[in-house]
Design a binder for these strands. Sequence first.
DNA 1: AATTATAGTTTATAACATAAACTTATTTAT
DNA 2: ATAAATAAGTTTATGTTATAAACTATAATT
Lengths: 95, 95
Amino acid sequence: MSDFKPLDPLLHSQLRLAIISLLIGLDSAEFTFIKEKTESTAGNLSVQLDKLQNAGYISVTKSFRGKRPLTTCSITKVGIRAFEEYVENLKKYIE
Amino acid sequence: MSDFKPLDPLLHSQLRLAIISLLIGLDSAEFTFIKEKTESTAGNLSVQLDKLQNAGYISVTKSFRGKRPLTTCSITKVGIRAFEEYVENLKKYIE
DNA sequence: AATTATAGTTTATAACATAAACTTATTTAT
DNA sequence: ATAAATAAGTTTATGTTATAAACTATAATT
């Protein structure tokens, strides 16, 4: 029972894992907030958010605050489930 | 204190993590044993063992069993320390 | 009116993970 | 004795990734 289960490659990435880790504790988060918390560059963040969204792990809403673009993200149920499974599998590697 | 510390890229890789995870519980392990346990291909394993060795995380000894080549690996103190730190950092992401 | 700041997106590139092909030697079968 | 198959890896090729750099568009400031 000490098998190494495959780790979801979408989550086994430092930045995407940090994003999900952050979102799982929040209702939603803004692009700039995620950027600050994860200390990522905007470009990298933009790309990784896209991937998570395409996988259905997060939902991304684009709107405006005043006249400025505002990108808001939140984790989906699919994302939560994927994260839980990832963590479960990962633990076999690190315990 | 919920900062996302950088994750050692050498360990944040499914196969290398599995290798280290395996070796940390053993005195040493043979190439073929690691290959079976991690369900990796020989090529991939060979490459990843090289990387871990170059980083000083494992030591690799090449000898012969009878007339066949025999590659034996074991984790080093540096490797143990790196793994411990990796796990410590990783936990911030998954707790 | 220029410059700087905000909020991102798109593109380019270097590193990576992985599989496929290859090497060298050893058994086993014909 | 020779050919085929197995063992134990290594090397090379390739497709993906992560990341940074460059860019776009608008807004605020000097």
